[in-house]
Write a protein that binds this DNA or RNA. Structure first.
Lengths: 217, 217
DNA sequence: GTCTATACGCAGATAGAC
DNA sequence: GTCTATCTGCGTATAGAC
């Protein structure tokens, strides 16, 4: 919040993010980060209390965005239109500024993030987002489609191997595939076109969300 | 191959696989594995030359299966039918025996596997498999769909949260979603139904496979 | 086949000078 | 705000006894 230094804190974040993503959080030592910046390990400890606080520092921003998104989705009806806007906004957030780097960091460090509080929080948000994407259709297939929708946005960054493709094209293709998946999720709890069938409705649990959210949106 | 010991080698593999998956490869120490088995670290080194050789030992089997699968796919025409059988056989392999554990290990240790030879080999095979799933349709959207098809099989294990679902149901749902994705991939290089449009064909690279494979299939 | 003992290095983290 | 110096502990791996 209050950095009066010449951006050293930001430089540490940038280098750490890069190394954590390339070789993994566990495998990257503070010594390595310090060497890249031509400073000592002790200098790092002036800016951050610990190694995992470096992670938290660049995750905060993303957490905030996701919270806003989830809150918005909960205030909307569970229709295809809502879901399309939801995934579209999610893609916007992921493709904006330097978020792609943070996105890749998360993909590449899923396991390490299990022991980091920032990681657990992000996991929680991703689950909520997936839940919102299939709210109203509790079938297993819908859950899978919802998850794949998020994967579509994420993997558009590495799964598409084209030499001169722009970020905008990646985004558009991701949303094209995502929309197809979303279209197969039932829009209303009472389905009126039994062509797809309800599959195995194992048992409705009413409030799988977690918090009851009593505060205003 | 030739274990005359009372299965100690297998017990090490099992415990290592479990811990590597739960807490990550880097974070799991040989001391921890040894303690779980009530042996010493030195005992581990009798059975395996190094830590990463433990990984290789339980990856070998999976590599062989995937090689067979890829080889088969290459000998077949690039049609929807081929792709459906391919993903179905892949699912069979993934759901068979204790392969789900190995599958989860890979998902959870993507980054660590970049510095392990076994990991690099698996990455290579996954890429080849994805390539086969969209051979004949080099559009970015097809590449994304092919990758998501594989994700569908993988994520059916954790994305579907249902209390009493069987492995067979998971497999069926994964293939249901996978088939939808595959249906949108063009079956022939010369598309004759322009309803979907050619998207942004950025530039055809004839042999994006890597090896020219001159040997017989 | 498994043990004890140990080598050697690097990890994260702190104290206190400048 | 950055440094030098240092602490403490654990990491992988090896030697050699039983």
């Amino acid at each position: 919040m209050s950095q009066s230094t010449g951006g050293t804190r930001e430089r540490i974040q940038a280098v750490a993010l890069e190394l954590f993503t390339e070789q993994g959080y566990e495998k990257t030592s503070l010594r390595e980060i310090a060497e890249r910046l031509n400073v000592t390990k002790a200098a790092l400890y002036y800016h951050f209390k610990s190694k995992d606080e470096i992670v938290s520092s660049f995750v905060e921003d993303r957490l905030r965005r996701m919270d806003e998104l989830i809150e918005w989705a909960r205030s909307q009806p569970a229709t295809l239109a809502t879901r399309r806007i939801l995934i579209s906004r999610y893609a916007d957030a992921m493709f904006a500024t330097q978020q792609p780097s943070v996105m890749r960091f998360f993909e590449q460090n899923q396991t390490a993030l299990k022991s980091l509080s920032a990681g657990l929080q992000m996991r929680d948000r991703m689950m909520s987002l997936a839940n919102e994407l299939c709210r109203g259709d509790e079938s297993p297939a819908a859950q899978l489609r919802a998850a794949l929708t998020l994967f579509a946005v994420h993997s558009s960054w590495f799964a598409v191997r084209a030499p001169d493709i722009t970020d905008d094209e990646r985004r558009r293709i991701a949303l094209e595939v995502a929309d197809e998946l979303l279209a197969k999720i039932a829009s209303e709890p009472t389905v009126d076109h039994p062509a797809r069938g309800p599959l195995t409705r194992t048992g409705e649990q009413p409030g799988a969300d977690g918090q009851p959210r009593s505060d205003a949106a």
